[in-house]
Design a protein around this nucleic acid. Structure first.
Lengths: 341, 341
DNA sequence: CTGAAAGCGCTAACAC
DNA sequence: GTGTTAGCGCTTTCAG
């Protein structure tokens, strides 16, 4: 497999491994002639440094482990994309892992990253109270947490999004358009982010003096379930005028359900979604969304990680909260509402 | 960083590194008592094997490098997802790379994979005549090629899709619905797959006695360009009745352009797309698509790769051609056509 | 059943 | 400028 090592190059050039190593790593202490000779031979023989061996000498590995919740979820895909962009620029390689939103897999993947002695680890955790952060701390490895901020105030790099505020602003947008019967669709198991979205929903209702109707809080545990839940919601007599989809991956299910039932957006029901996948702006009507800066999260996360790895003495940023942007499109209808607003 | 090594465990348990190594790797030749002691101490001390060191002894690395064209392209994302699924099952880790469809980056990424001494490499190449395959061959590393079949008949694992046939069937579907003026939207630089799609388009027209109109072959080099090209196409006097989008990533641009120009699907123009992203089935109308088995491609690719790595003596499958499926939905209108068909 | 020792490819400390 | 040597953590002969 390995074709040629520095040892062999040393032999071929009548030099020593040390000289070859220095020459190939652009260090000084090598004469021009020797350097050129070595480079020529290395090129000719197709020498390729063994990064494993290099890393074993205690340096960094140039490996960054990144854990996401689900590879084919476009939110995570964008994080991955941004992460890869920066990693590439910095000549780092990305080892990926997916937790599929299961805690055991999460731990297992981190374990693998650690076993490969990654120089840095970026994680999207489902549960921020997770012992994973403790593990990471203990291992004394550079890491940053993306997307979900740890509940305890742990000193680590953090790039997150204010889900509560985003949600508040989203629901507020619906209210400002005259809606008062606003349903929210959220996952059954409320992890921190989702929980915060729910809080934002509640706070918005409260701020505008709207009483929360438990019937309008729709929880579901899967995409299929979101479809069923939507169908069921539409069957109710006192149907909401607006639906806030608090989890992007449920979006397709909801839209499909509405299509199946011939419920028109926004005439029959207004829709606002958390997250802004590609399709949201090509649907007819285009869906009003709260757009998160996912790609930027990946970029900043890896940037922060690399800064930490290089540890260039500077006081490092600990936490970045990314702004989201409400993309106002045509899925929310302005309605007249009897009563004050 | 590294907290504890087998050496230290050996010291702690009054044994030798060898014994510890055997015990921790479930090899025999260790008494029950010693094994239990070692396991206990290892667990207590939070021992984590150094995979880099392990790999250096010439074994496999448990690393698989996978190169895709673009991380945020859903076709590749699905491949990645399928690949990750199988890699996980087999306790392999995925090192990812993206070529962004540039040849230099492609080579650079492969180089990195090789430097990490990956046990296997899976690649989605833009150009199958690529010297990359030669490099891979030379390096004597296990590899499989996904998506694009090499032009020369090279003996390597291959999972691909018959783009020509898929395209033929797609255009045939349009013809069978009475269309004769069928435009095709393809990238400017025809790599092999796209070229085959174009061939399929030509063959379908030819088979049904339709003369090809150069005006209806729309090439573009980017998503933005696809948007502009669509707008331009719509301005023509002898507008086509159907548009075959031969590249999925142009889909959103086309739809946006149609929306911008208030051109209705399928009343004003029929649409058929190569590839079946999530949004295709929630648009109104839902878009008729040729669905490729991307996730399955990732799965089978890694499976094949691992079979090769393990090299279990069996005669190995060399090539798998995955069937695509025409998802007939509502974006193609049946039209009456003066003249034969 | 267990230990000592070699060595994977590389870098770094130290001589010359 | 250059060579020698040690050693990263591990597995694997080879002896006992």
């Amino acid at each position: 497999m390995q074709k040629i090592t520095i040892k062999e190059i040393a032999k071929l050039t009548n030099t020593s491994v040390n000289t070859v190593s220095r020459a190939l790593n652009y260090k000084d202490g090598v004469s021009k002639d020797t350097r050129e000779l070595i480079e020529k031979v290395a090129l000719k023989e197709g020498y390729r440094p063994n990064l494993l061996a290099r890393s074993m000498r205690g340096l960094h590995t140039n490996l960054i482990g990144i854990l996401v919740g689900e590879i084919s979820n476009s939110f995570y895909t964008r994080i991955l994309d941004g992460a890869n962009e920066i990693a590439n620029q910095e000549a780092m390689s990305l080892l990926i892992g997916s937790s599929d939103e299961h805690k055991e897999k999460e731990l297992k993947q981190i374990d693998t990253f650690l076993s490969y002695r990654c120089s840095g680890i970026a994680v999207c955790l489902i549960d921020p109270a997770s012992e994973i952060i403790a593990t990471l701390k203990e291992e004394d490895v550079n890491f940053v947490v993306l997307d979900v901020s740890p509940s305890k105030n742990i000193d680590c790099g953090l790039i997150c999004i204010d889900n509560e505020r985003d949600s508040f602003l989203s629901v507020e947008e619906l209210i400002k358009n005259g809606h008062r019967r606003i349903a929210i669709l959220i996952p059954e198991l409320l992890w921190k982010n989702e929980c915060n979205r729910y809080m934002g929903y509640k706070r918005a209702l409260f701020s505008y003096g709207i009483e929360e109707d438990p019937e309008l809080v729709i929880t579901c545990h899967s995409k299929d379930d979101a479809y069923r839940a939507t169908i069921q919601l539409l069957g109710k007599k006192n149907r909401p005028t607006a639906l806030y989809i608090a989890k992007q991956s449920f979006g397709l299910s909801v839209i499909s359900a509405l299509m199946a039932k011939d419920v028109r957006i926004p005439e029959n029901i207004s829709i606002l979604m958390y997250g802004d996948p590609d399709w949201a702006s090509i649907l007819h009507p285009r869906i009003t969304c709260m757009r998160r800066q996912a790609r930027e999260m990946g970029r900043l996360g890896i940037k922060m990680l690399i800064d930490r790895i290089k540890g260039d003495g500077l006081e490092q940023k600990r936490k970045i909260v990314l702004d989201s942007k409400l993309m106002i499109r045509e899925s929310v209808q302005r309605i007249k509402q009897a009563g004050a607003c």
